[in-house]
Design a protein around this nucleic acid. Structure first.
Length: 282
DNA sequence: AACCAGGGTGAGC
DNA sequence: GCTCACCATGGT
C-alpha cells in the first residue's frame, strides 16, 4: 500500500479496496452516496469525494492534516490477507472471506455509528439509508450528521415526521446523554466487555447495536454483531443447536478471536446476498 | 394481507 | 437469568 498527497487529493495505490462494496453494499455505513462515478461522503464534518482507481482509489477534498484520519477511517494499514488464515479451521468462513476481496471494515466516528445503528433496529438497509439521509438533511448542517447538541434539541415529532417511528425518542434521549457527558469517544480506549456494558446504558442500544458501534465506530475488532442474517448463517454452518444470540456471539469469539468482527462482515454480506445458500432443505 | 428488515424495551416468570 | 408482545415504517 502506498499513500501520496498533492493539492487536496489523497491517492492510495497498491491495495485491494472495493469502494462499492465497502461504502454502499456492505451495510456498515449508510450516508455515502453515488453520483456520476464518484462516492460522496461527509465524515466527521469532512466533505470528500472518492473515485475508484486501478489498484486503489483517489480521495478529493481531503486536507493534508487529515491523512492519518483517513488512513484510520478506511483501515488502510490492516493486512486483510491475513484474515483468511484466521479462518483456517472453518472452511465456510474462509470461503466467505475469499469471495469478497476488497472488503474493509471502516473506523467511523463513534457518534455517527451510534445514531445510524439505533435507526437500524428492526429495519432494512434501504430504509436505514433513507432515514439517515433525511436525518442529516432535516437536523444537520452542510450535509453532516447533527451533533449531539443539535439532535438533543430536535422535537420528537420532527423525527417521527421523517419516518423514524418509535426510534425517535431513542435518538433524542441518547443524544441528551452524550451531550451531557456520556464518554462515547473514550470507549475507544476501553476494553471490549466494559465498553459493551457502558453502551447498553444508552436508550435504543442493545447487544447487537452495541456490537455494531464497537466494531464500526470504536475500533473493537472482536465485536461480533449477531443480526438475523448472521444468526441464520452461524446456525447453519457452525452451531446448529446453539441457544440464543448471546451464545453465538460468545462462540464466535472462541472461533475467530480478536478479529471476529472482521470475519463477521464478510459472513454477513455473503449470507445477505445469498452467495452461499442458507436454505434448510438440502 | 401477513411477513420481513443489521432489534430494543418492559413485563412477567 | 429467560421468554414474549409490542413497537413505526415501507416493501414484498
Amino acid at each position: 500500500m502506498r499513500i501520496s498527497y498533492t493539492e487536496g487529493v489523497l491517492r492510495v495505490e497498491d491495495i485491494c479496496f472495493d469502494p462499492q462494496l465497502i461504502l454502499i453494499d456492505s451495510a456498515q455505513v449508510f450516508h455515502w452516496r453515488q453520483e456520476g462515478g464518484l462516492f460522496l461522503g461527509v465524515v466527521g464534518g469532512r466533505n470528500v469525494s472518492l473515485r475508484k482507481e486501478e489498484g486503489g482509489f483517489s480521495l478529493f477534498g481531503a486536507m493534508e492534516k487529515d491523512i492519518p484520519f483517513w488512513r484510520k477511517y478506511f483501515d488502510l494499514d490492516r493486512d486483510y490477507d491475513h484474515l483468511a488464515a484466521v479462518c483456517k479451521d472453518y472452511p465456510m468462513a474462509k470461503q466467505a472471506i475469499e469471495m469478497l476481496p476488497g472488503m474493509h471494515v471502516l473506523n467511523q466516528p463513534a457518534w455517527e455509528t451510534l445514531i445510524s445503528f439505533i435507526l437500524s433496529a428492526n429495519n432494512n438497509v434501504l430504509r436505514i439509508r433513507g432515514l439517515v439521509a433525511k436525518l442529516i438533511d432535516a437536523c444537520g448542517e452542510q450535509g453532516a450528521f447533527p451533533s449531539p447538541e443539535q439532535l438533543a434539541g430536535v422535537p420528537e415529532e420532527k423525527l417521527r415526521a421523517i419516518g423514524c417511528g418509535y426510534r425517535a425518542p431513542y435518538l433524542i434521549d441518547t443524544a441528551k446523554k452524550v451531550r451531557d457527558g456520556f464518554p462515547l469517544e473514550a470507549l475507544r480506549e476501553e476494553e471490549y466487555e466494559e465498553a459493551h456494558r457502558m453502551l447498553l446504558m444508552l436508550p435504543g442500544v442493545g447487544d447487537k447495536v452495541a456490537d455494531c458501534v464497537q466494531l464500526f465506530g470504536l475500533g473493537h475488532s472482536q465485536a461480533f454483531p449477531v443480526d438475523v442474517w448472521v444468526e441464520r448463517l452461524m446456525r447453519k454452518w457452525f452451531m446448529p443447536n446453539a441457544g440464543g444470540k448471546k451464545e453465538i456471539r460468545r462462540r464466535a469469539y472462541e472461533m475467530f478471536g480478536v478479529h471476529a468482527g472482521l470475519v463477521q462482515q464478510s459472513l454477513f454480506h455473503c449470507a445477505r446476498l445469498g452467495l452461499i445458500s442458507l436454505d434448510d432443505d438440502e
